[in-house]
Design a protein around this nucleic acid. Structure first.
Lengths: 136, 136
DNA sequence: TTCTAATCCATAATCGTTACGATTTATAAC
DNA sequence: GTTATAAATCGTAACGATTATGGATTAGAA
């Protein structure tokens, strides 16, 4: 995913091009890591004093709903990053220091076998946490 | 894990036997599902009017720290349940309706292979969400 | 029974998130 | 370009889950 594709999606869904959105998408495009709403606000407030949480959260929700961003919960806080382009379903290692991720080409659902015979599976989560080479 | 074992652990670590703790452990022993602090408070308040969140949260933290309870985050809220006795490391299917769990004897870390060569892995999470046979 | 640390209650503070009415802005029709 | 209007934003307040605090109570050992 990149900001060009993101804007296509936004436009197709009737969303307007605004400076704040542009800047948000830029930030996500610039570094491929999980960030919090606060981290985004802290940066955007410098350029746009008075920027409010409402704007951040509303846009993040929109982006997630449209499949532009991925979201995960790390130590009790929502974290966001640009969604992967990969066509293959996959999972991630997440660095708890810098937020950077590394894609893992495996999915544990492949080795489920006959477990959960009568269960209705709706979702699953597989993430590995630790420190990336740069951070330890 | 059961309340007898839990009390051994608590006593060994200098924690006192109180009615509230006894009742909390009973509740966890009675049904093997993930519950929230609020759900626990709602029940305990009937028997102990004036019961406060502080008591619930402090004890839950203690129990988790001592390995008596397991904790996971479901839809933005902390959920707790009695820790499994199984000696083998494993994961769970979690019913999003009733909170009941089913153990899965597999762990995706077994199929990691040479990925994450230079990474320091500290933790991982693998959970499957959906509806159990009773709930769908 | 007495003593003391552990525990508990009542309440307020904190943090992340969501919601609100008023105002501003991007887009499209004129 | 001007105007209309629906969307987006701002400023702020509300919210729910969690954590913290200070004083009162209680369990367990001496």
């Amino acid at each position: 995913m990149n900001s060009v594709k993101a804007w296509e999606i936004l436009k197709n869904n009737g969303y307007k091009r605004t400076n704040k959105r542009e800047r948000l998408l830029q930030m996500f495009e610039a570094n491929d890591k999980y960030v919090t709403a606060r981290q985004l606000l802290d940066v955007l407030t410098v350029e746009y004093p008075g920027m409010s949480y409402d704007t951040i959260y509303r846009n993040l929700s929109t982006f997630v709903a449209l499949g532009i961003l991925d979201e995960t919960e790390l130590s009790g806080e929502r974290h966001f990053r640009m969604q992967c382009d990969a066509t293959e379903h996959h999972h991630h290692f997440i660095c708890m220091d810098c937020g950077n991720v590394k894609a893992l080409e495996i999915c544990p659902m492949d080795m489920l076998g006959p477990n959960l015979q009568d269960y209705q599976v709706e979702n699953h989560k597989f993430e590995i946490y630790g420190k990336c080479p740069q951070c330890h």
